[in-house]
Computed example of a mutant assay.
Amino acid sequence: MATVDLTQATFEETVTGEGIVLVDFWAAWCGPCRMFAPVFEAASEKHADITFAKVDTEAERVLAGSLQISSIPTLMVLRDGVVLYMEPGALPAPALEQLVQAARDVDMAQVRRDLAARTEPAAR
């Protein structure tokens, strides 16, 4: 599956659904972004069951700002609408593959329990 371009209008719907979504925040003037792009594209072809998306931070300044993207490239990994990873920096192909596998291996039932425990009021 090729990468999809996200905008403010399509971001929420794409990242809140079921499954794994990788989002690359980038800009055309960014050298590391241009170096990471073919790695990201190759991974998207290899993992057809995962959504690989890109956000052009120049065209989508409001979206990037709302997510506090301050350095690019930044990679965000979500699974079932939960952010599992969000870090700046271009990854080499093997590291991206490890990240994809880690996202696949996450016990989402445990993640949901942990999130629920954090949002429950403290016992009195």
Rank of each mutant, 00 (worst) to 15 (best):
A48S: 15
I50W: 12
A37T: 10
A42H: 08
V23R: 00
L96Y: 12
G31Y: 05
L115H: 02
S71E: 12
G19H: 00
I50R: 11
F52C: 02
V100H: 06
E18Y: 07
C30H: 11
R112H: 13
A59R: 14
V39D: 02
W29K: 11
S71A: 15
F52V: 03
E13W: 07
Q8W: 04
R113Y: 02
W26Y: 13
C33H: 00
L84I: 11
A9N: 12
F40S: 14
K54M: 05
P38R: 05
F11R: 04
P88D: 06
L75G: 04
P88E: 06
T14M: 00
F11K: 05
A28P: 05
Q98S: 13
S66Y: 03
M35P: 00
A53C: 08
R61N: 04
A2P: 11
E58D: 15
V4S: 11
P73R: 00
Q8P: 01
V62N: 06
R79N: 10
D107E: 10
M108H: 08
M76F: 07
T3V: 15
A103L: 13
R113C: 03
A59M: 06
L63P: 10
L115M: 13
P94E: 02
V55E: 00
T10K: 09
A64H: 08
V82K: 14
R112I: 10
R34E: 04
V23C: 07
L6M: 09
T14F: 00
L78Y: 01
L22D: 12
Q68Y: 03
A59L: 08
V100E: 09
D56M: 04
T3D: 06
R112T: 08
C33V: 08
F40V: 12
W26Q: 01
L22H: 13
P92W: 06
L84R: 02
P88Q: 06
S70P: 01
G65N: 12
I69P: 02
G81E: 10
D80G: 04
K46H: 04
R118G: 14
A93E: 14
D5P: 03
L67E: 08
D114Q: 12
T10L: 10
L63V: 08
S70I: 06
R113E: 15
A42Q: 14
